[in-house]
Write a protein that binds this DNA or RNA. Structure first.
Lengths: 248, 248
DNA sequence: CGCGTAGTTGATGAAAATCAAATGTGGTGG
DNA sequence: CCACCACATTTGATTTTCATCAACTACGCG
C-alpha cells in the first residue's frame, strides 16, 4: 500500500486576483466578456484571494495542518486523500476547475490536498472568506447547495465502496468522469485520466492490479477503448451504465 | 442481500409545534426551562413544522420521492439507505435526536429513510424551510457548519469502507457510537445498538455473518462486552482505538 | 539508447462472502 | 405462565473475489 511522498508547497507563480481572473477567462471555456462583465455573480470569489500555480505532485496542504484558508480550483486536477497510520490511503476525491476544498470548517484540514497535474488554485484566507459571507448573505446559501451536492457525491461513493464489485466500481468511476467531461464539452465521449492507476485504486478501494485488470476486462468486452495519452473512450455507455448499476 | 420491505408511512400521532417542543424538552436531557426560554436560538426549527411519531420499521420517504420537506429527528433512531437495482443495500447513516435529513436540495430524495426504532420526527415543508432561511440569514451559515460536519463524517466513512478490515470497521463504528453516547451522557461507556446486525453490516459494507464474527472477536479479546438488550460496553477503548486506527 | 517507473499479466494466498446449520430470543397464543 | 413459533444471531464449512507476490512489458525522460 504505497503512500505518496508528500512534497512541500512550491508555488511556481502568484498573481493578484485581477490578473488571475484574466487567466481564468482565457484558459477556461467561458467567453472572457462574460466573466469580465459580472464576475461576482458568476463566482463570488473571483475577486478574492490569490491564484497560485503549482507543479504536479505538489502538496497544497496536509491532513492536520491548520485550516487557515479555503481553496477553489482554477485549473488542473487536485487529489484529496486520507491516510491510516500504517499508510493505507483513501482518495476522497479528484477536484477540477470550479471545485472547492477546505470548507470543512474545522480547525485543521481533515485530508491532504495534492496536485495530480500542474494546477492553478485560488487561495482564500479564512478571514476573507468569513468576511465575504458576512457581506453577502446569499453566499452561504449558494455554498449550502454546493456542499449538498458534495454530500450527495460522498453518499454515492459510500454505495460504491461498500457494495460494488471491482468492475462495477471502475465502470461507475468512468461514467462519472464521462459526465463531467460531457458537461464541459457536450457529446464528448473521451475522458482524460491524469491520475495514476494507484490513485484510481485508492479512490475505489482496490489495488492497482485489480484496477488494471478491470480496464482490460472493459476493453476486451468493447465497453471502452484505451487511447494514447491516458485518454479513455466510452464506447458503450449503455452497457457501462448497466454495469455501474445505480443512479450514481 | 436482504432488502427490507418498505412499509408505507403510518404516523401514530401528530402534534402542533408548541406541544412537540414540550415533548422534546421532557424526553431530552435538556432542562425544560432552557428550551422554553429561547427555543429559536437553540433550534431555529423548534417552532416550525409538525412533529410526528412513527412505529419502528416505518418508511419516512423513499429514494426517488419528491423532496418536499426537510426533517429533523426529535427522538429515536432513523436509518438512511441507498439500494442497487439488484437489492444490494448501503446504509448511509444512522440518525439520532438533533440530526437532520433531506437537506440534499435536489428535486428528489436520494436515499430512503426508515425508523430503526419508534421515532419522533419534525417535518419542515420545503417552502417553510426556504422562507425561514430568507428571514434568518444566519441560519444558512449554521446549516453550512452542519453540512460540513456531515461531509467530514462521510469522508471518514469512505476511508472505513475503502481501506479498513472487517474488525477495524466494527471497532470504528462502536467508537463513533460511543463518542455520541458520551456526548449526551459523559463518562458513559455503554452504547445501545437498536439496529440489527444486517443494518450494521450494510452500513460497514459487510455481511451479517462477518459482523457477528467481529463482535465475537472483540468480545473474546475483552475489548467489549455484550450486555442484555442490545447494549455493548466498551471495555478497552484504548485497544479499540488502536484497532480503528485513524482519527475517524 | 538505456534506465527507471508505471502498467499489465500471471500465480498464489487470504479475507470475507456464501452456503448451511445450530442456537438464542422475543412475541404470541394456548 | 409456559410452550411454541418465527426470526435474529452465532458458528461452521466451503467458495469467491480480490490482495499479494512475482515477473514481464511499455513508456517517458535524461
Amino acid at each position: 500500500m504505497a503512500a505518496l511522498l508528500a512534497t512541500s508547497v512550491r508555488p511556481t507563480a502568484a498573481y493578484p486576483a485581477s490578473v488571475a481572473a484574466g487567466v481564468l477567462a482565457r484558459t477556461g471555456g467561458v467567453p472572457a466578456t462574460v466573466t469580465a462583465l459580472r464576475p461576482a455573480e458568476i463566482d463570488p470569489f473571483a475577486a478574492i484571494g490569490m491564484v497560485r500555480r503549482f507543479d504536479r505532485d505538489t502538496e497544497l496542504f496536509a491532513e492536520g495542518n491548520e485550516a487557515d484558508a479555503v481553496y477553489k480550483v482554477v485549473e488542473g486536477t487536485i487529489r484529496l486523500h486520507k491516510l491510516l497510520p500504517d499508510g493505507r490511503r483513501q482518495v476522497i476525491g479528484f477536484l477540477q476547475a470550479g471545485d472547492m476544498m477546505g470548507l470543512a470548517m474545522a480547525g485543521t484540514y481533515l485530508y491532504t490536498a495534492e496536485c495530480v497535474t500542474a494546477a492553478a488554485v485560488r487561495r482564500i484566507p479564512r478571514a476573507r472568506f468569513e468576511a465575504t459571507m458576512d457581506e453577502q448573505p446569499a453566499l452561504a446559501r449558494k455554498l449550502l447547495t454546493t456542499m449538498a451536492s458534495e454530500l450527495v457525491a460522498a453518499q454515492d461513493q459510500m454505495l460504491l465502496l461498500g457494495r460494488k464489485t471491482a468492475v462495477e466500481k471502475l465502470a461507475s468511476f468512468l461514467l462519472v468522469l464521462g459526465r463531467r467531461a460531457a458537461a464541459r464539452n457536450p457529446g464528448c465521449r473521451r475522458i482524460d485520466l491524469p491520475m495514476s492507476r494507484t490513485d484510481i485504486a485508492d479512490y475505489l478501494g482496490l489495488t492497482t492490479e485489480t484496477v488494471s485488470r478491470g480496464f482490460t476486462k472493459l476493453k476486451t468486452s468493447r465497453l471502452i477503448r484505451l487511447l494514447d495519452g491516458n485518454v479513455v473512450e466510452l464506447v458503450d455507455t449503455e452497457a457501462l451504465t448497466d454495469l455501474a448499476d445505480c443512479g450514481a
